[in-house]
Design a protein around this nucleic acid. Structure first.
Lengths: 325, 325
DNA sequence: CTGAAAGCGCTTACAG
DNA sequence: CTGAAAGCGCTTACAG
């Protein structure tokens, strides 16, 4: 690998001049510039980013800390972030934590020591907040909304509004016995979604019917079984997210219960899977691309933005698991 | 951020000694060691990985170059790689290329300049091979099998065998008119799968029935429409991968064609989606975890391994879209 | 416009 | 066992 010295020697200039030509940080004599360009070409020189990063204190790196890249919602979020990062010449470092707080802490520390420019964090551990203030790079929390401090910014969609929309849609579709599968209430997105459902119940004088579940396929199957026993007349199900909605459908399908004729289903997130499955899933769509892009931009376009919290609207997407009229 | 000098000053030793304590690279007087440890504790010192990497010429980084993290097969592969990398203290840098060769080249260059320890490459461009020889770090090609050169190693599953198994299974299930949806033949995995199908046809004296498609959901829908027109008596479909199998099912479902009663379907890959959908998809399973782990280990456990190509067996997973007898 | 020098924060021969 | 020095490969004041 050629170094800047090799190029300098070949072009008969100093390393400083090579640097200036590469980066356009100062005017350089045309003649010398040509020699440098030629020498770079000939040596196949590529500047060492590590050395550059050591000096600049920026590695053009965004750290992505999430429970698992294999969770479809996070996959798509990562995709959106990557696209925005790439556009600006930034790279993503992936840290899966399985929601283990020690791993989250370790990841933050490691990213800081790598001179990452910022971190996008999707944690389910509330206490992680205590560790985010220790580092001097911006941390963007997505999909959650705990109260920020200092270098913390938050971007997510309006889960509460989405929760309301889900319930209102099922009512509009004529459901008389709606059951809400609540997500884990320690996770703010799950709580907000449920609160939306609950408030609509209160306003309309409808009795709450709920069941508890994690954001998880396996549990979704188990909980659906329980749900069917507990609420025998159910004709509408609000799943806490799409993955659970898919498992609800599977259980109903296996029991020969027709969707949407006998039971209607609505999910939350609008992951790609929602329109891959048959029947296609009606769901509350999060603008994942916008959320990812905004999170990345908050790091890349540092400081310009003063807002602390960015909230995007959720949107109803009617497909085949519900039927209007 | 405290630096090694701060720690040294506080502990009244030289930076070299601090380094030796941290890394255990030499014996250090017990007394001094204690002072250093205490000073690290007090300052919250975390060594700067960039500086370390500049010296060591290793950043403990694995570059992952793939068309898109949002392709479920690659998502799972990335997950498997990440797990293995994490176990050994390595991090993943994500580079989505959309199969654009310029982006692939740029990614390789950038990873080299970041002092990455190796690259795991899943490209669909054959010419990329010409650029892999330029860099001095190991490059592991997965899911493809072009002839390697120098620092190239290859790990993938036995697509040919898998292709045979798919066809043999459908025959065993009593299908009389089997259609094979061929993937793009420039991609070696697609070609190998098709070759497996083709050879079984020849051995059994069955006439080939095929249709062309990309590894893609949208195209899968379109191609299935054509397939149904071209082969009206079809009762078994071999999809080039699971994503296409899902789209095949959707089209059949929409037309009211029952699966597996009227038409049986088999996919390839065994992505998570295969057992999420209803009915669950029969498919040829790739050992994605093992492939990812092996690819990562080839980089991490450098040089130990002399083999140039690692081939894993595919496995039939019978689920609900086919019916044995 | 341009080069010599210092420095980014570590690590490791080297000498003692 | 341990410190001073050199160096990893860049960049940017500084001086001319």
């Amino acid at each position: 690998m050629a170094s800047i010295r090799d190029v300098a020697r070949l072009a008969q200039v100093s390393p400083a001049t090579v640097s200036r030509v590469m980066n356009g940080t100062a005017n350089v004599d045309e003649e010398k510039k040509k020699r440098v360009l030629k020498a770079i070409e000939e040596t196949g020189f590529v500047p060492n980013e590590v050395a550059r990063s050591l000096f600049k204190r920026s590695a053009k790196l965004i750290g992505l800390i999430m429970p698992s890249i294999e969770n479809p919602f996070f996959t798509q979020l990562a995709g959106a972030i990557e696209r925005t990062a790439d556009k600006h010449g930034y790279r993503l470092v992936l840290c899966n934590t399985g929601s283990v707080i020690e791993k989250e802490k370790a990841a933050i520390q490691m990213l800081v020591s790598m001179n990452a420019d910022g971190i996008i964090l999707t944690s389910s551990n509330d206490e992680i907040r205590n560790y985010t203030s220790l580092c001097n790079i911006p941390i963007i929390v997505t999909d959650r909304s705990f109260n920020g401090c200092g270098n913390l910014k938050i971007v997510h969609c309006d889960h509460y509004q989405g929760g309301r929309m889900a319930m209102e849609h099922l009512i509009r579709c004529g459901c008389k016995s709606i059951v809400c599968i609540k997500g884990q209430q320690e996770i703010s997105s799950a709580k907000d979604r449920y609160d939306g459902y609950k408030d609509v119940c209160q306003e309309k004088g409808i009795k709450e019917q709920t069941v508890d579940c994690a954001y998880d396929f396996e549990q979704g199957m188990k909980v659906t079984d329980e749900l069917l026993k507990k609420y025998k007349d159910v004709d509408g199900i609000i799943a806490c997210n799409d993955m659970v909605a898919v498992s609800v459908y599977k259980v109903l399908h296996n029991k020969g219960i027709r969707v949407p004729e006998q039971v209607q289903i609505i999910g939350f997130d609008d992951i790609a899977l929602a329109k891959l499955m048959s029947p296609e899933l009606t769901t509350i769509s999060q603008p994942i691309d916008e959320i990812g892009a905004k999170a990345a931009e908050l790091i890349i376009l540092k400081g310009e933005e003063t807002q602390q919290e960015y909230i995007f609207e959720a949107k109803l997407v009617e497909r085949e698991t519900t039927r209007h009229n």
